[in-house]
Amino acid sequence: MRLLAVAVLVGLCAFASAVELVLNRHASRKLFVELQSLRDTQQQLDQEWGQLLLEQATWATHVRVEGIAREQLGMVTPAPRQVVELR
């Protein structure tokens, strides 16, 4: 009688553990899919960052900035005698 009770208990435990395994496995897959999509997002953002960096660098090219400064804004480099040095 006692032996039977132990056997049933062990059996129940084994079953519970099997169910647990399945549930965990499922949870791990779900988390993995989430991780995967986050990685995709990260890569996308990385690429976007690269493109924005490129865009920024292109807008800030010296040739362009100098052209605008000189032609549109009429800026000039000050002559040495116009510069006052503060020490």
Binding site: Q47, G50, Q51, L53, L54, A57
Partner: peptide, 9 residues
């Protein structure tokens, strides 16, 4: 740190 060469997709 100004970028001089960048790879983009």
């Amino acid at each position: 740190g100004e970028p001089l060469a960048i790879s983009t997709p």
